[in-house]
Design a protein around this nucleic acid. Sequence first.
DNA 1: TTATCCGTAACATTGATTGTTACATTAAAC
DNA 2: GTTTAATGTAACAATCAATGTTACGGATAA
Lengths: 138, 138
Amino acid sequence: MLAYLAFRKGAAVPSGEIAASVATNPVVIRRLLSSLIKARLVKAQKGAKGGFSLASAPENTSLLEIYRATQSNPEHSLNRFTPNQRCPVGAKIEGILHEIFFKAQAGMEAELARVSIADVERQLHPLCPSKRPKMIPV
Amino acid sequence: MLAYLAFRKGAAVPSGEIAASVATNPVVIRRLLSSLIKARLVKAQKGAKGGFSLASAPENTSLLEIYRATQSNPEHSLNRFTPNQRCPVGAKIEGILHEIFFKAQAGMEAELARVSIADVERQLHPLCPSKRPKMIPV
DNA sequence: TTATCCGTAACATTGATTGTTACATTAAAC
DNA sequence: GTTTAATGTAACAATCAATGTTACGGATAA
């Protein structure tokens, strides 16, 4: 979605247009974007000729910020089981795995931090300038 | 589960005992372990006095191997949406994100590769030797 | 004043995971 | 040999999150 907004160069893009690109319902788009609006990554303008746009230049937003804004609760990923606290393994395994998963997640986030929306948008265009028609987004 | 097997030092551990540690049903344990058996990380012995045990010394198995053995299909994580191929963004975004997510996953896997089952099992025991009672697993 | 568009609630649908029961198969122990 | 205690797996219900859909109130440009 944010790649699409970057592609549209700051225009106010209605949810229906983004939905056509992702092939889903406009409400789904608005729902997903609402958390990005709370995180100040996206702006919304109500009313006629309104729509969504990036809150900042595409260079200023990394995929890590998007990831964090859309993650509901990182702690909840591990909490799908409740070990027996009376078992010597169960009593300690949660804390041990939590630390390991934290580092693993940090490794992944480091990679996401290296990529900006502008980097993604740049890859949308063909490398050869002659092959860059003015395409009308659906 | 594998930390528990390491904790039991090579003994044949029935699924019911592991289930008590994780507070779930023995069938769930057997189901999860079946993929680890296919990946040759765990051995199973049928019949009376049977059970599960690590296929190799705990030092020889990393959390990355466990992660890969339990992942159903890594490609399937991204395929939860089907972009409109007639949209210039939708047509290219999948490939772009795939490459980025591949690197992000590699960053995470690098951290998992650094940890062995033996590392986890070691942390189960208190650091101070005087505080190491012979506890009977539930 | 009207035509758009966002924000959000409500609800159904879908799909994956989990829990449970059941039973065939296997192997140790007596 | 028979018994006992395991795994392996199918079948099914229950649960939960994500998704799709309809509806409607509020906001805003033209």
